[in-house]
Amino acid sequence: MPNTDTSVREVIIIGSGPAGLTAAIYCARADLRPLVLEGEPSSTTDQPGGQLMLTTDIENFPGFVDGIMGPELMANFRAQAQRFGAEIETVKVSKIDLSSRPFRIWVGDPSADEPSHLAKSVIVATGAQSLMLGVPGEMELLGHGVSTCATCDGFFFRNQPIAVIGGGDSAIEEAMFLSKFGSSVTLIHRRGELRASKIMQERARSNEKINFRWNSEVTRIIGETKVTELALRDTLTGEESVLAVDGCFIAIGHSPNTGLFKGQLDMDEAGYLTTHEGSHTNIEGVFACGDVQDSLYRQAITAAGSGCMAAIDVEHFLEDIPEHS
């Protein structure tokens, strides 16, 4: 299916969350005819529309007085980009060569001789994805009690005991959401206190269905055909125990989707791309926006804002290069 496109695009945007699609809206309106490589559907890794596709109500995106559903908000972003002529392909980039211009991008078979697309400039908006625990049983029982998406799967655990692993805002949000379904929600955290914001902590503590297992880490997820128990270890005493649950939701944080760019784009120790003067990366003509370069704010609105910045930076860059570079 990936056909080789020999024309040189003004700009290719990789990723289709709030950052990538905002960049697409601005690039399209600037008549740069952007191509968005939006990724491929997945429930466990990155996906078209980004992390908001795995959420329900978004109550802090300005302009939506009564809130909006995450997937609906992203469908709106996408439609708005298309309205101004952005082209969107549902493919995943398999390889990229930023060593010379035009930049070369492969989708499908990364060992193909010829790249699928050529571009004068690239906006990287590949976002971040949920981290997994990496313990035995986790992958085997994914979709059979192990989940990374409370909003997708909480429904199936009505009146059943649930565990949430993690201690940040997203773990608390998941626990709050799941408390509407489960008979109990146990928040398992490897430290003795939460990283989550004060307001989230208070909400969790005042929810009578939520209880806490402090200083505990999951060493194994147990079950034949579906999750039945979690094996836990006390991080202070080393004492081992077992917790009976039907559902296990993992919310231990995110890692940036930057594997494609290793050795080409500068990144920090955690793998987040380093940007300077707005959205510039270390390679001229390559710009980055959204969660892929932001481990601090990680909000839909900040991602969208940085997508706008990247589009404006691309515009300035393309104005300054000779016509046939």
Partner: peptide, 24 residues
């Protein structure tokens, strides 16, 4: 079904294959 999307293929009335999660 404990996770959606789940897609189950039924052939001659019997489930023969199950896909859990979104895919390309």
């Amino acid at each position: 079904v404990m996770s959606i999307p789940t897609m189950i293929l039924f052939k001659d009335g019997e489930p023969v294959m199950r896909i859990v999660g979104a895919k390309s």
